[in-house]
């Protein structure tokens, strides 16, 4: 397992990959907007998922985007997972 991650870094990474994917500046990515509001669907979320899995060396599945539907809740989830909370 990779070293513990800071919550801020996780959030930053998620914002970056979302921004890259939807081609909008990072500053415009709100932490409380739902993934589907950014235009994520069952196809491009697969790509997002792959990047998250590789970056955090973790295994997740599509349904997590519905269980943790915002960058804020997803970051908190990843934070807890990575720090064994």
């Amino acid at each position: 397992m990779k070293n513990a991650e800071k919550l801020d870094d996780i959030t930053k990474f998620l914002k970056e990959i979302v921004s890259e994917e939807i081609k909008e500046p990072v500053e415009s990515i709100g932490e409380d907007q739902h993934f589907f509001e950014f235009g994520f669907d069952s196809i491009n979320s697969l790509y997002l998922m792959e990047r998250i899995e590789k970056h955090f060396e973790i295994e997740i599945n599509q349904l997590y985007f519905w269980d943790y539907p915002t960058i804020r809740s997803f970051s908190e989830f990843l934070f807890q997972e990575k720090n064994n909370l």
Partner: peptide, 8 residues
């Protein structure tokens, strides 16, 4: 139902 990129 749910395939990942690695499955594809």
């Amino acid at each position: 139902l749910y395939n990942k990129v690695e499955d594809l």
